[in-house]
Design a protein around this nucleic acid. Structure first.
Length: 112
DNA sequence: TAGGTGACTTTTG
DNA sequence: GCAAAAGCCACCT
């Protein structure tokens, strides 16, 4: 087998799982919360692995613009939007409506 | 071993 | 205001 890998992904998963319904966050916010600072790409990479976990609402994780950049990774380009709308998040033009209003900052909401 | 890629972010022209 | 490039780190071939 192989050696244990860092819980890097698990950390991202836990934060994403803490995202309340009807809220969304950005890769940079999670990266910053985990101390990855410029590791926003790593968060996205972790999301790719999160695809194997059913409890990771990756659809609630969007880029800094609130754009559903990873919608294409859900199997269908509309799957992510459907999931977000199911959570009460309005999506328009593949972008979160009122993004700053539904934006969920772990450092702020979790009371870091 | 080395090179390339990527669900991003920020700065500069 | 828009477009392009650099930076960052981990995983894959």
């Amino acid at each position: 087998m192989k050696a244990e890998k860092p819980n890097y992904f698990d950390l991202v998963y836990q934060v994403v799982r803490e995202i309340p319904k009807g809220r969304v966050t950005s890769y940079g916010a999670i990266a910053n919360y985990l101390g990855l600072k410029s590791g926003a790409r790593m968060v996205g990479y972790a999301m790719n692995a999160a695809h194997a976990l059913p409890d990771v609402p990756a659809q609630r994780v969007v880029n800094r613009q609130g754009l559903l950049t990873g919608k294409h990774h859900f199997g269908s380009p509309t799957r992510m939007q459907e999931l977000l709308e199911g959570d009460g998040v309005q999506i328009e033009n593949d972008q979160v409506v009122n993004f700053e209003a539904v934006f969920w900052d772990p450092e702020k909401e979790l009371g870091f």
